[in-house]
Simulated assay, not measured.
Amino acid sequence: MSLRLSTVILPVDRWNEGGRAKWQRAEDLGFHAAYTYDHLSWRTFRDGPWFGAVPTLTAAAATTSRLRLGTLVTSPNFRHPVTLAKDLISLDDVSDGRITLGIGAGGIGFDATALGQEPWTPRERADRFAEFVALLDRLLSEDAVTEEGRFYSAVEARNIPGCVQRPRLPFAVAATGPRGLRLAARYGQAWVTTGDPKLYENGTPEQSVEALRGQLARLGEACAEAGRDVAELDKILLTGFTPDRSGPLQSLDAFVDFAGRHRELGFSEIVVHWPVPDSDFAADQKVFERIAMEAAAQLG
């Protein structure tokens, strides 16, 4: 099975002071896709520069021609399906059909309270996520949508001419629990995981591989329940959150070994963070670029 290599570029640079250059360089290096995080602020970057995902991707679409673009991931924390759908259709048009929407249930980080609300419970996040994905699917596929939901509604919401990609742009659904996996099986063109968060601090790479194997098995069960072949979904691993940490980016050989083990599990796309100096995502830029240019050939 072939393995695609992609990157996630954190929106921390002013566009004219390095931001544009990173997205252009990602295309030059041959990455399959370049994603960005869709947050209002994030973790240790909260007190530094952080730009919006939709404007950043619009600019990236205008300055690249081949690279797929997308979010990893968008959540309901501060988004509404009606306004998000309009932005996504516009993005898909500007990029000429190169947008993938990574979408997840969100968490309890800064986005969860920035609009003044109390953090949602895990159950409410799951309930909202299910309704959010279902309505967004309709909004991106139909010219006019009216729907009254418990959390999200639309009244004659118009989305003409719709997406360039038909019937709509692809969803990459981030999920590990039963309800999220069922959403991925029903609505996803791809599935995203960061591994098992319980293993991040004290787990081993071997335990992480076994945890991922279990997630893939449960995805297969969800697809079977939905009457769908799990092979139809791309399986995306967003790296940087497994016990390996930055180990795979230490050398070309280390990355090829890491990627090969995960390809054998069934992953079709590996996403690595573009290096950010003095952060959890610091890495040698030259090694990173060598991996981008040479790893795919070694992996076959």
Score class of each variant (00 low, 15 high):
D143T: 11
E147T: 11
R68N: 12
D111K: 01
E148V: 12
A61P: 02
R98V: 05
A130L: 01
G116F: 12
A59N: 13
W50N: 12
S95H: 04
F78H: 11
V164S: 06
F78Y: 08
L136I: 07
D96R: 15
L135M: 07
F78V: 15
H80W: 07
S75E: 02
T100S: 10
A126M: 07
R150K: 10
T71S: 05
L101M: 08
I89K: 07
N77M: 14
T63K: 07
D96N: 12
V145L: 11
W50C: 14
G48P: 08
G107A: 05
L101P: 11
F129R: 00
E142H: 09
T71N: 06
L91K: 01
R158V: 12
Y152E: 04
A53F: 15
E148C: 12
G107R: 03
I103S: 00
N159W: 13
G48C: 12
P119Q: 00
P81G: 04
T121D: 03
I160W: 12
G97A: 02
R68A: 10
P119G: 00
L91H: 08
Y152I: 03
F151N: 01
L88A: 04
T121Q: 11
Q117G: 10
G106N: 05
G116I: 08
D127N: 03
A157C: 13
L140V: 03
D137L: 09
G97V: 03
D137K: 13
N159C: 09
T64E: 11
V155W: 15
F132K: 04
V82F: 06
L115C: 13
V155M: 10
A61K: 01
G102N: 09
T58Q: 03
A59Y: 07
C163E: 08
T74F: 06
I99F: 09
S65Y: 06
